[in-house]
């Protein structure tokens, strides 16, 4: 008898409690175990359990770490290597090379991590998603839409279906300007990726990748021409669960400002609008507008010694 007739639900409970190195090995046990361990729901639960265990137990031996990515370009062999380093211990800052992967030769834009996964992309080479803890990297298949070029993408997590979703913004290379952008939403499943295509009506004026903050993607959109005045500009939201669009107006106080000096960020799980348009004050001020429970909350940061020209807050998890 013994463990032979154990129910699948209990196997799940055992596996979420073992380290990722064991998991990568156990993928080879049989097909059922492989699909169980590769399931996004499992990955999410394992991550949450590990986090809880880390909080409750021993901090020093935890796998809690900072991941740093580093690109190395090899022009001769026409490829780029991405290195993932981790710093596991605050007291020992030496970086440990966790994982390297070869990708198409290009320069890449890295998105902030989302629930343990990292995403990076370039217009030419496409989108890669990586789970550095299990040393797994996958290239997302290109869009089949014709005459389209990748502008940007975002990686988010649907907490209800526990699946990761990628939003991909595509530009029609034949069109004159921003009109006719296409949006694709991809769900990363166990073995397949379902895709939903949304056409037209979207602009993407500041080219900043969509920001993911708990259940939504956000980016700046406009409904008129391309003047730099913030009238006509708004924040486009996309609900990852219901896949529906919404609109958030800028705070009233910023109307008339130069939207090109705005950026969107995620701060502690909340959407945050950063306003750096303070020419009159010698650019020594930055306003953070945090969007909480459907209203904007203003926080002003003054930095008297130097202009805040190129400063943008770095997102964090609170």
């Amino acid at each position: 008898m013994g463990m032979a007739s154990i129910p699948d639900s209990l196997i799940f409970e055992f596996l979420i409690r073992v380290p990722v190195k064991s998991l990568s090995r156990f993928k080879c046990v049989n097909k059922f175990w492989r699909s169980l361990i590769s399931n996004p729901d499992f990955i999410y639960t394992q991550l949450q359990t590990t986090k809880t265990l880390i909080n409750h137990h021993d901090h020093s031996s935890s796998s809690n770490c900072l991941i740093i990515s580093y690109l190395l370009h090899d022009h001769d062999h026409n490829h780029t290597t991405v290195h993932f380093y981790t710093i596991k211990d605050h007291h020992d800052p030496s970086a440990f090379l966790e994982f390297s992967a070869q990708v198409t030769y290009d320069s890449y834009h890295f998105l902030p991590p989302c629930n343990g996964l990292l995403c990076f992309y370039s217009a030419r080479a496409g989108i890669y998603v990586c789970n550095p803890s299990i040393k797994y990297i996958v290239r997302i298949p290109d869009s089949i839409a014709i005459r389209c070029r990748l502008l940007s993408c975002g990686l988010g997590f649907d907490q209800y279906t526990r699946s990761y979703k990628i939003i991909r913004i595509l530009e029609n290379v034949a069109a004159d300007h921003d009109d006719g952008l296409k949006i694709e939403v991809l769900t990363m499943g166990i073995n397949s990726r379902t895709k939903k295509m949304i056409n037209g009506g979207f602009r993407f004026p500041n080219r900043q990748p969509p920001v993911y903050a708990i259940c939504f993607f956000y980016w700046i959109n406009n409904n008129s021409g391309c003047n730099s005045n913030s009238s006509g500009f708004f924040i486009q939201s996309f609900d990852i669960g219901s896949e529906k669009f919404g609109i958030i107006q800028f705070p009233e106080k910023v109307s008339g400002k130069d939207w090109r000096l705005f950026s969107l960020e995620e701060l502690g799980g909340e959407l945050c609008l950063v306003d750096l348009d303070f020419e009159m004050e010698g650019k020594k001020r930055m306003d953070l507008w945090v969007f909480k429970r459907s209203s904007w909350f203003q926080e002003t940061i003054l930095h008297p010694p130097e202009p805040l020209d190129a400063t943008r807050p770095v997102a964090f998890h609170g």
């Binding site: 196997i11 064991s22 156990f26 080879c28 046990v29 049989n30």
Partner: peptide, 16 residues
């Protein structure tokens, strides 16, 4: 445990 030990522990066979 190794993969073989796991198969023994849970009495499962590889279907790869």
């Amino acid at each position: 445990k190794s993969t073989d030990e796991m198969r023994e522990f849970f009495d499962i066979k590889s279907d790869f």
